[in-house]
């Protein structure tokens, strides 16, 4: 009668079912896929428009997108593929001359005294009829230009890419040398309203 005294093992046959149920549950509840996006800060509702006017024309890189999704940068029609290069040329701190933004010498931590753009702003104007796709492409190219310049600067000075830099280095480069300055003008209805 020794056998009958053993505690019987717990039946584990249903374990598989239980785990399957749990699995299905989590599959259903978990939202799959992460969202990616271009993160932007909208300007607060304008109270005084005078700030816009003060900026010198050579410090502003004007990009227009019309209702046919044609892109005009600095008064000439360009292709979307040229935009990144143009924007880089405009922002690049080594470019001097009347057509480029005003420069000033700044004393910065980590890099010492360096000549940077006093103010360099991209003014993005679009029409009500511009497609969202074209708008995002332009935003993307402008952001890409700034990212590339930041990376180039960081590689040159710190020997690594912008994303691999320390917070302090990122702050210096991202805020003082190559800030992401994209100003969106108040909406215009130049091309006429089309539904």
């Amino acid at each position: 009668m020794a056998g009958s005294k053993k505690t019987p093992g717990i039946n584990a046959a249903s374990m598989a079912d239980i785990s399957f149920i749990l699995l299905i549950f989590f599959l259903m509840v978990t939202t799959m896929g992460t969202d990616f996006g271009l993160i932007r800060q909208l300007p607060p509702m304008a109270e005084d428009q005078k700030n816009e006017d003060k900026i010198n024309e050579r410090n502003v890189f004007v990009v227009n997108v019309n209702q046919h999704d044609n892109i005009m940068a600095e008064k000439s029609y360009i292709n979307i593929s040229e935009l990144r290069g143009k924007a880089k040329e405009f922002f690049f701190i080594g470019n001097e001359g009347d057509e480029f933004p005003e420069k000033e010498v700044k004393e910065l931590p980590l890099v010492g005294s360096i000549k940077v753009n006093k103010t360099a702003v991209v003014s993005l104007q679009n029409d009500r009829g511009t497609s969202y796709k074209a708008y995002i492409q332009v935003q993307n190219e402008l952001a890409g230009a700034v990212h590339e310049l930041r990376n180039e600067f960081c590689l040159q000075h710190f020997g690594k890419k912008f994303d691999d830099c320390s917070q302090e280095e990122q702050d210096t480069v991202g805020k003082q040398i190559y800030p992401m300055a994209i100003s969106e003008a108040e909406p215009k209805d130049a091309g006429g309203r089309r539904k």
Partner: peptide, 18 residues
């Protein structure tokens, strides 16, 4: 802007070429 929700994200797909 009117309600002061200024932080926005244009959600896009992530691609190699835009």
């Amino acid at each position: 802007r009117r309600v002061g929700a200024l932080k926005i994200s244009y959600t896009t797909a992530k691609g190699e070429k835009a």
